[in-house]
Design a protein around this nucleic acid. Structure first.
Length: 354
DNA sequence: ACCATGACGCCGCTTACGTCA
DNA sequence: AATGACGTAAGCGGCGTCATG
């Protein structure tokens, strides 16, 4: 049995695992088990107050057994020009993104970040704002968008405007000594999410471009991506743990079943008269695990071999029971696109002689 | 070729703050 | 209004990598 357990960088671990097991293809990922219905949804979208949260949630049920087919984690970075110029964003669709003459500052994304003065940047891209955590950026962009599209500010924006105005005032009062909590606007977060979908890491150019477009400091973009990667990893770890837990449960159940079967066979062997022990059935016991495989000339065996690929344990133990599990939990990278397909579960694998 | 050093980016951990029930 | 849980932006230190001398 081969299981890949990774609580660290799962993607690397599993890719290594799969690389080392070239025969383990998607066809072999037949050890199917569903992740149990979790009380906490696996949510890839961190947007916390959208009404359509359910659309962004991944719900995986354990019944009936399902096979989790995974979109391959494809960290292949696209060329920057692809990722940064042709995105469509819902809040821009009708008003700005489709307007060829919109004042985008040449970005083509339709975010009018020039309505308000850009945060001055130093040579290294660091904003030369008076306050290290100046809150000008977040509101500016939202104000631009809403003002552009609605000719007015929503109540939320108004509230934020007042709050931020207050913050700025206090910021000036305290000369930026206290750490101010800057919450990115929904639009900024969505924009960053879209970028994260394209590439979960940033090169300096991309970082600067994003920062300019969102009217954020490059450091903020960098931090956002770091935190986003951490969140993704955390969720992936949760999924991995859940998956391994289910693996363990299933294997325990399988072990219990086989032990019971072994007991029955032993009882049968001792209770049968001597003359019944003809070579019609051959019992082979693995010396290490004391599991029994029976082979009859014409029928199948109790060996629930789930994988026909050559493996060393099979060779070393001859007819020992081989339950090979080679699968991987659903990958969330880069953005949790998990396709859940009903499939034949392991419990439905050939178990003819039982 | 080898080594020391600094810059840089990422990660893990942590803190501080905003939001919500 | 007070409070605790939770999410998240941001700080900090460590580590690996790379370029340079």
């Amino acid at each position: 049995m081969e299981l890949a357990l990774s609580l660290g960088d799962a993607s690397k671990a599993f890719s290594k695992f799969l690389d080392k097991s070239p025969k383990i293809t998607s066809k072999n990922l037949g050890f199917c088990m569903g992740l149990e219905r979790r009380t906490q949804e696996i949510r890839e979208d961190d947007d916390d107050d959208d009404d359509n949260d359910e659309d962004d949630s991944i719900r995986v049920s354990s019944d009936p057994p399902v096979q989790l087919d995974l979109l391959p984690f494809s960290p292949v970075p696209r060329p920057h020009h692809q990722s940064s110029t042709h995105l469509r964003f819902p809040w821009l669709t009708h008003h700005m993104a489709t307007e060829p003459g919109s004042t985008t500052g040449g970005s083509g994304r339709g975010l009018d970040v020039n309505r308000f003065p850009m945060v001055a940047e130093g040579d290294d891209g660091t904003a030369l704002s008076s306050s290290p955590n100046s809150a000008v950026s977040s509101f500016q962009m939202e104000f631009c968008i809403r003002n552009n599209s609605n000719n007015g500010i929503s109540s939320r924006s108004k509230r934020e405007f007042e709050a931020e105005t207050h913050e700025r005032g206090s910021d000036d009062d305290e000369n930026g000594l206290t750490r101010k909590k800057l919450r990115l606007s929904k639009e900024q977060s969505a924009f960053l999410e879209e970028s994260f979908k394209e590439h979960n890491t940033l090169n300096p150019k991309q970082k600067l471009a994003l920062a300019k477009q969102l009217n954020l400091r490059p450091r903020q973009v960098e931090v956002w991506f770091q935190n986003r990667r951490a969140r993704t990893k955390l969720k992936q770890t949760e999924v991995d743990c859940e998956y391994l837990k289910r693996c363990c449960e299933t294997l325990t159940e399988e072990n219990r079943r086989l032990q019971k079967e072994l007991q029955e066979l032993r009882a049968l062997k001792t209770s049968q008269p001597f003359y019944m022990q003809l070579p019609a059935t051959t019992l082979t016991m693995c010396p290490s695990c004391e599991r029994v495989a029976t082979t009859t000339p014409a029928t199948a065996t109790v060996t629930p071999t789930a994988n026909t690929s050559n493996n060393n344990s099979n060779k070393s133990t001859n007819n020992a029971i081989s339950l090979q599990v080679a699968a991987k939990p659903p990958r969330l990278y880069p953005f949790g696109h998990v396709q859940v397909q009903p499939s034949v579960s392991h419990s439905q694998a050939p178990q003819s002689a039982s």
